[in-house]
Design a protein around this nucleic acid. Structure first.
Lengths: 369, 369
DNA sequence: TTGTAGGCGTTATCAG
DNA sequence: CTGATAACGCCTACAA
C-alpha cells in the first residue's frame, strides 16, 4: 500500500497511475515501452506523466533491475589534459541512449582506485572504464582483477586503457614504440647527451616509455646514465623541478625528453627562466601531444598518443558485444617534430641522415608500430 | 523474508548479518555508526563485512533515505580548460566524506542542461552545481527556477556559478569589471582600433564581458563599430575563424580582445600563420587566465578569473548551512598583462600614462572590483 | 542495546 | 493486454 505522500517532492509512478486511472505496472510498461499496452491507456499514461512532470527515480530502477544506466570512469587526474582528452573521446559514444557518465579522480592512488571501483560495482553501473596507466604493483593487480571479475560475472563490462596487471579488455597506445621512435629522432638530430624527465616509477606507462627510449638509445650506441634520469610526477611543476635537477646533475645535456607533455611545458618554462634558448641551446621533447602542445613556445616536439580515440575505443569495447576472449586494441603512436627540437649544434655530422621523412609544413611525422 | 541469493554477486547487508550472527539493523547501525552498538557486536560485524568484502548498495541507501551521497555538477564543456579548472577547485571540498562527484556535459545546450538537472533531481543528489554561464533566455530561466526550487523544497542544495536568470545561491566572477579594466589597459597602451572576438550571444558571460568592455571604451572616447565585433564559440577554432573575419572586416585593428583564452590562443595561432607579429603588429588579449595562458607564445595578457576558487566556493555554498536568504558571492577579477600586448606603435603619445602599476617581473596586475 | 516490521519507487512474475 | 504481488538492499521508527 503506497502512502501517496509526496516524499522528496517528486511525483512517483504511483501518482501517475492514479491520475491515469491504471495500475503501476501499466504505467511502467507504457513508459518503458517494454510490453505491449493498448494505445488508449498508453496515451492516458503519457499525458498523466507529462502533466505531473514525472521522471523515474533512477535509484529505484537500478535497485529493481539491479543495473544502473550509467557508466563509471576512473581517471588518475581529471585536470591533466591527457585525461581530459580521453574523456572527451569517451563522451560522445558513451552518452548515446541518455546514459550518464560518472567520472571520478583517484589522484593516482591505488587505494582510491580500488575504492572507486568497488563503489561503482556496488552501484551496478553498466560498464567501468579505467582510464590511466596501470600500476606496476602486481599484488594490487591481483586484487583488482578479483574485483573486476566479480563485476563481470554480475553482468558488468570493463575496459582498461593502458597496460595493466589486471585481466580485462584493454586499449593500449604503443608507448614503447613511440618512445623508441623519439629516441631515434633525437639521435638522428645528432644528440648524444640526452636527459629524461621520467614519471612515477609505479606506473606501467613510465616503464614502457622508458623501455622504448632505452632500446632506441642503445641501438644508437648511446648510454643513459642514472644522472641523466630524474623522476617527475607528470605535473607542470614536476617538469620545472625535473629540468633543474637535470641541469644540475648534467649541465652538458643537449636534449631532454619529458615523459609527458605537461612536464615538458614546465621544462620549457624553466629553460626560459634560466635564459636557455630552446631549441638552440637545448632541445626539449614531450610525450602525448596534448592540444596545447602546438601552442606553447616553441611548439613542442612530442609523441602523439591518440587519447581521444583511446577513450572512444574503450567505450566501444565496454558497450559492444561481449567478446569470448580478452581483447586488446593496440593503437599506434607517432613522433611529431615541431620547433622545440633541432639538430645538435655540438655534434659532428651524424652518419645517419637528419631527416627521415620528407619535409612537410609544420611538422614531420614518424609513425610508430 | 530475504532470499539470500547472491543477486548481482555482491554481498548484501543480510549476508553480513548472518555471518556475524546478528540482525540487519545491527549491521546497519554498526557500519553507519549512527546508534550505539555494543563493542563486541560492532567488532563481529566489522570483521564479517571485511571478510565478505561488503560494500553497501548506494541505490538502496539512496532509496531508503531518499538522498544520495553524491553531488551533481553540470558543465557546459568538460574539455574546456575553464571548466576543468572550476572542477579542479570543486573536487577537494566536494569529496570530503567519500562523496561522489558526478559530472555531466551539456555542450552549452539549454535542453540538455534541463534534462540533466531533472535527472540529478530524481536521483536525489545532495547538491547540484551549475557551473557555467547562464543563458540570456528568461523563459528557460523560469523553467529552471521551478525545477530547482522543487529540488530545494525536497531538501536538495543548489549553487550556481555565473550570472543566471535562475533564483539561487551563486558565485559570480566580476566579468563586467574585468572587461572594463582590460579596456582601460588596452586604451592606456594607446590602442584605439580594437576588435573583439565575442562569445555566444545567448550567454550572460558574453553579455557581461561585452558590457564592461563597452563601458571602458566609451570612457576613453572610443567607438566599437559592429564590424569590430565577431561572434565566436569559445573554442580554439572559433578564435582562428574569429581573427580571420576580424582582419577581413577591419585590417587596421591594432588590438584584439578575445572573450576567452581558448579563442585567444586560436587567434595567436592564426596571427602567426599570417605572419602577423604579436604584439609588435597586433596586440591580442584573452579572458580567464587558464593555466596554459602563461605558456603559449607570446604569453597571453588576459583577465584572471579565479576559476578554481569559484568551484570551491560553490561547493561551500551548496554544502554549508542553508542560508535564510539568497546568497551571492562576488569574486574579483584581475588584469594580467604579459607579452601578447604592447603599446600601440601607431598611436600618437596618449595623454594617459601607459602604465598604471609599477613594473613587476613577468606581469603587471590591475585588480578589478 | 538489539530485533522486528514496514517502507523507499520501480520492475518482474504470474494470474486473470 | 492488465493488475496484484513479491522482490531489489537498506534504513528507521517502534517494540522488546
Amino acid at each position: 500500500m503506497k502512502t501517496g505522500r509526496v516524499g522528496a517532492g517528486a511525483p512517483t509512478i504511483d501518482d501517475v497511475a492514479r491520475l491515469a486511472g491504471v495500475s503501476e505496472s501499466t504505467v511502467s510498461r507504457a513508459l518503458r515501452s517494454s510490453r505491449p499496452v493498448s494505445e488508449e491507456l498508453r496515451l492516458r499514461v503519457l499525458e498523466a506523466a507529462q502533466t505531473l512532470g514525472y521522471s523515474p527515480n533512477p535509484h529505484a530502477q537500478a535497485l529493481a533491475r539491479s543495473e544502473d544506466a550509467a557508466i563509471g570512469v576512473v581517471v588518475h587526474d581529471s585536470s591533466d589534459p591527457y585525461f581530459v582528452e580521453i574523456l572527451r573521446g569517451m563522451l560522445g559514444p558513451a552518452e548515446v541512449g541518455g546514459r550518464m557518465v560518472l567520472v571520478c579522480d583517484t589522484q593516482r592512488r591505488p587505494d582510491r582506485e580500488f575504492q572507486y571501483v568497488r563503489h561503482f560495482r556496488s552501484q551496478r553501473v553498466q560498464a567501468l572504464l579505467l582510464a590511466g596507466s596501470g600500476f606496476e604493483d602486481r599484488e594490487f593487480g591481483a586484487r583488482m582483477t578479483a574485483e573486476i571479475q566479480a563485476f563481470e560475472r554480475a553482468g558488468g563490462r570493463v575496459a582498461l586503457i593502458g597496460r595493466h596487471h589486471i585481466l580485462g579488455d584493454s586499449v593500449r597506445p604503443d608507448n614503447e614504440g613511440g618512445a623508441y621512435e623519439m629516441a631515434r629522432a633525437l639521435t638522428d638530430l645528432g644528440h648524444r647527451r640526452i636527459g629524461v624527465i621520467s614519471g612515477p616509477a609505479s606506473l606501467t606507462t613510465t616503464h614502457d616509455r622508458l623501455t622504448g627510449l632505452q632500446r632506441g638509445l642503445n641501438e644508437a650506441g648511446i648510454e643513459l646514465p642514472d644522472r641523466h634520469v630524474v623522476v617527475g610526477d607528470f605535473t607542470r611543476d614536476g617538469g620545472i623541478k625535473g629540468l633543474s635537477q637535470l641541469l644540475e646533475a648534467a649541465p652538458d645535456l643537449t636534449a631532454v625528453l619529458s615523459l609527458n607533455d605537461v612536464m615538458a611545458i614546465g621544462a620549457l618554462h624553466e629553460a626560459r627562466r634560466r635564459g636557455i634558448a630552446v631549441p638552440a641551446d637545448l632541445s626539449i621533447a614531450g610525450f602525448d601531444d596534448i592540444p596545447v602542445a602546438a601552442d606553447v613556445w616553441p611548439p613542442l616536439s612530442t609523441v602523439r598518443v591518440p587519447m581521444a580515440e583511446m577513450g572512444a575505443r574503450a567505450v566501444e569495447l565496454a558497450l559492444g558485444p561481449r567478446p569470448t576472449h580478452v581483447q586488446i586494441v593496440r593503437l599506434p603512436t607517432e613522433v611529431i617534430l615541431r620547433k622545440s627540437t633541432a639538430p645538435c649544434r655540438l655534434s659532428r655530422p651524424s652518419s645517419v641522415p637528419v631527416s627521415r621523412a620528407g619535409p612537410r609544413p609544420g611538422a614531420r611525422r614518424l609513425t610508430s608500430a
